[in-house]
Design a protein around this nucleic acid. Structure first.
Lengths: 237, 237
DNA sequence: AACTGCGGTTACCGCTAGTAACAAATACGT
DNA sequence: ACGTATTTGTTACTAGCGGTAACCGCAGTT
């Protein structure tokens, strides 16, 4: 069997794999998530079939690549989440860590949000990037482990995990595109939101309002009255 | 000029456009967001170039399609958000409306979350589906209009808008995939989260914990100690 | 009858992911 | 030392995508 040799080959293959991943990383960083297999192969100094021998599939390569980055991000987040400070402080610092990360390397971030898009089987569900799923699950476990939530705590913790992660992600994504404020301020607003300020905020005084008729929050089109459920579609609800 | 004829032709073109959109809708509903232009053309009983004459571009068609669905969803959400009930109730009902919608037509939902993915220019920012952006903006305006948030209220309202929408989306997406609980429960958990229960929940009593050493929330791999920022990557921060 | 504009088609381009088939080199058993 | 099998790499290909150019035929106008 020559196990020693076998092992050596395995090692060599692993090293090769790492090199290839690094090359792919460089290309994705340069070209965005639409980097082609040809381009990646060229960057690695080889040709396509080798890539396919190592990763089987484009989504295979992308998965391997995403796993690396996700691991790194997750480690940073765990550190922030596990700091010995006050709960609110930890929340803020975790969100800030995430935002700092996506701010520092938007290309990587963008790549992590997309990499699926291939599988053409319409398996409704599983749309979100694996990164978000994983972050949500992790945070859910953390909450479940740290907080006393009463009966049904597991479900609640998981919902919260995914919800908080989604909030972080969407706000971060929007912020990254428009840069409407410095990062600390975004963090502060999000923490406020999660801290229940939404519940305690005052109603804004408005003019007499028996029925909605004047300047509402409406922006464009479709002011066609009360189409609430069965309006334009939903033929089989 | 024959403006009457011109007008008739315009009308015909508009009708045609609607037919094409409906055909495209059927195909997307059947094949998911990866429906090809060929398939859509075939479903409409014509060939590709006509599609291109009408919509110019695949993303053009997809944008038109998404706009219809987004308008419908937005109308439903506005109705829920504008009901004459208690604030917390309105929040719950809005979230529930959204969830009911994506539950009823997951294919449409899935399509709405994806349709970009083409543009190969790496314009970091603008990753999220336009639907989410629009929902976030709308909700932000609503909050800004209805709540008294003190100085800097506009920014805060926008952050909250995008944050809440992101929370709803991520939790809904996860829920749609795993179905871990009935919808009402998911809604209740999310409302609780936004209502500040995170701030007031008790710490869970834990065994002596001078430093983290035992069962943490960690799940797999990468327990390599304190790599918080400069650990695995981020070479140019 | 000739002309013009529009709906529609076929046939193509350049690109992609993915693969089959072949070439060289290296380590192996005998 | 020699054949042999395995790994590493290549070239050259398929099938299908988005997108387009060039052409066909039928309405109405003059």
């Amino acid at each position: 069997m020559e196990t020693r040799q076998r092992a050596a080959q395995r090692d060599a293959a692993q090293n090769r794999r790492q090199e290839l991943l690094e090359a792919a990383d460089r290309v994705v960083l340069r070209d965005g998530p639409s980097a082609s297999m040809n381009a990646i192969a060229a960057e690695a100094g080889i040709t396509k079939p080798i890539l396919y021998r190592h990763f089987g599939d484009k989504s295979g390569l992308y998965r391997a690549l995403a796993e690396r980055h996700t691991d790194a991000l997750l480690a940073a987040l765990r550190a922030a989440l596990d700091a010995p400070s006050d709960r609110r402080e930890r929340l803020a610092s975790t969100i800030d860590t995430y935002l700092a990360r996506i701010e520092a390397r938007p290309q990587v971030y963008r790549f992590l949000m997309h990499p699926a898009e291939s599988e053409q089987g319409f398996d409704s569900g599983r749309h979100t990037a694996p990164l978000l799923r994983r972050l949500g699950e992790e945070l859910g476990k953390f909450v479940q482990d740290r907080l006393e939530l009463g009966p049904g705590s597991e479900q609640r913790a998981r919902v919260w995990g995914h919800g908080i992660v989604g909030m972080m992600h969407a706000a971060g994504d929007w912020w990254l595109g428009e840069r409407p404020c410095p990062r600390e301020q975004l963090v502060a607003h999000l923490v406020d939101l999660l801290w229940g300020t939404l519940a305690t905020a005052e109603d804004r005084p408005r003019a007499g309002r028996t029925d909605r008729a004047e300047a509402g929050p409406v922006e464009s089109g479709a002011e066609s009255g009360q189409n609430e459920q069965s309006g334009t579609e939903l033929p089989r609800a």
